[in-house]
Design a protein around this nucleic acid. Structure first.
Lengths: 348, 348
DNA sequence: GTGAAAGCGCTAACAA
DNA sequence: TTGTTAGCGCTTTCAC
């Protein structure tokens, strides 16, 4: 492959001049500029990114570390990251750790050898480990964390505002007249706790007893777990008019369980969830608090690049990204017969 | 960050010795090895991938070019690619072109500047352009193509065996007793043509008139297009016992249209499709010819790395990756009343 | 305006 | 066995 020397020789100038033309640095006479550009075209020359990086001590590259690119949220983040990176003339390496902490450690090693300028880190348990982040920070590699529930003090984090999401969704259901609520969620999820917190806030603000909120923790994260959890909820002593599922997998399980028990949505039970995987023609369509992964990915990578380019240098902080309520036909207004009159609040 | 010189100084040896220890090349006395390793640990030294690549003229990096990483198939391919790459000590850059030919061209430029050793190219219309591939090949960058319908002579391609997929699916339906078939597909799709070809093969092999196969081309690729196409098919003069949809989006549209017309699956119409996005609890579950994206991604990247490392150097050729029939309850055996007796073939 | 030359961090050939 | 050194391809002073 042609080098800058070849170009210089072909154009009959020095390498310094070629470099100046390529980078637009220094002053070069139009005549020589033309000769250089012709030489570049003739030899089909492309500067070596590697040699440049070595010299400049800046690689113009980013790394995205993630437990599973196959997850729609993570791939959406990757998508916007690569877009922003291209706009600002950076490239991005991807490391899919498969959720394996050992692979995560290995990936971090690679990342420092690659001398990337910055890292976008999925704040999942395998990656959000302070010792890993220290390895990066010690080497002055900028890091932003994204899309998890735990924040990390030493870096900028972009997290979902789960509390508000729970609050918003509960407000909506209360406005429809619902009071007795089932919340189906994984037993050990921090996000679930935050959402529940928001749901409770809504009840308290409306002056409705939080004891109307019934939680159904299930032990796993699978559709199957949710299916069984829903069967349990149905067979429990407490009849509920609305069910909030934890995520798309949960709502799939819940929907199936309700159908199998002959309960129609929304005639018998209103259903809402948190998540995005909605297909326009699936029946019934489920009201949902949705994530905007692409936008959070874009915000995080903008921030990362700003830090790298010293356009931003405030203390690291955590930003909460709001989720949006998308109303679909899975929730109906319930008749006043179900509501003690003194607790009624006006419909939207 | 510490350099190899720092390590040499700290250990009181020469850089050549340090290099030899790191790379396991040459003979170094155990005593010096120990000193060097201690120095490396003390200084927390990591060799610069960039300097190495510059010297070795091999970057140990791959690029994956794709129109949309958000597409589940493409992200699955990315996943297996990064896994194989890590195993063999390569890293991977991702370029998401957003389906924009201009972005594709730009990405190819970047890839050349990056001096990657190899490229995995999605064989979609924006990327599968000979002139782009020539840019790479001229610079001795290895290329494999993946997951498209058109093959390219100059590179190894890994394509779905659409003809056989159509054949297999049609055989299955014929065995169930179906004869009159509706095939709902995008008008201008090469894959659709291949699948239809396979379907016809099955009919011919079974000695059944191909005129029983009714095609319903629709102009777009969206769920909505499929929905409307299905309505048309239903209202056409020809009653069919089975419907084959082009992909997951199409089957979603078709299912909705059938439901809206009061047609039950599989009681009134049997439905099958090509694709993977099946959720265990969705009703009804659809029989499908499925793709194994991860395995095709792994095969393609293995091949790419073998070429890069000169472990493989046959002429470029095209491999057809078979799809698998997954039987679900959406297709039923039809009663002999629907079949002219002389055309009956034995059930599975 | 232009060219010569030092050096980014590393490897490998050669000397000692 | 170990050290010295010449580059890999580029950028960037600093003379001219």
């Amino acid at each position: 492959m042609a080098t800058i020397h070849d170009v210089a020789r072909y154009a009959g100038v020095s390498v310094g001049t070629v470099s100046a033309v390529i980078n637009g640095t220094g002053r070069v006479s139009p005549k020589l500029q033309k000769k250089v550009n012709e030489a570049i075209r003739a030899l089909d020359y492309r500067p070596s990114h590697y040699a440049r990086a070595l010299k400049r001590q800046r690689t113009h590259s980013l790394a995205y570390l993630v437990p599973d690119v196959t997850n729609p949220g993570f791939s959406a983040i990757l998508r916007s990251t690569t877009r922003i990176a291209r706009q600002r003339h950076y490239t991005v390496f991807v490391f899919d750790t498969g959720g394996d902490p050992e692979a995560a450690r290995e990936s971090i090693e690679r990342v420092v050898e690659l001398r990337v300028d910055g890292v976008i880190l999925s704040l999942t348990w395998d990656l959000a480990r302070p010792e890993l982040i220290d390895v990066l920070r010690k080497r002055e590699i900028e890091v932003v964390g994204i899309s998890g529930s735990r924040s990390i003090d030493s870096i900028d984090c972009f997290l979902w505002d789960e509390v508000n999401a729970g609050y918003t969704l509960a407000c909506y259901l209360l406005r429809l007249g619902h009071r007795v609520l089932a919340f189906l969620h994984p037993a050990d999820s921090e996000s679930a706790r935050r959402r529940l917190h928001g749901i409770r806030n809504a009840y308290e603000e409306a002056g409705i007893p939080v004891s109307y909120i019934h939680t159904y923790p299930v032990s796993g994260y699978s559709t199957k777990d949710a299916y069984e959890g829903t069967l349990q909820a149905i067979s429990s002593a407490v009849p509920f008019s609305a069910l909030i599922a934890f995520n798309d997998a949960f709502v799939t399980g819940a929907t199936a369980a309700l159908a199998d028990q002959g309960l129609a949505i929304p005639e018998h039970v209103s259903v809402a969830t948190f998540g995005n995987s909605h297909t326009a023609f699936s029946r019934p369509q489920i009201t949902s608090m949705t994530y905007d992964y692409e936008s959070v990915g874009a915000r995080a990578s903008q921030r990362l690049l700003d830090r790298i380019e010293k356009a931003y240098d405030s203390e690291p902080r955590c930003e909460y990204v709001s989720m949006e309520l998308v109303v679909r036909p899975s929730c109906r207004a319930v008749s006043s017969a179900f509501i003690p009159p003194d607790e009624r609040i006006p419909l939207l």
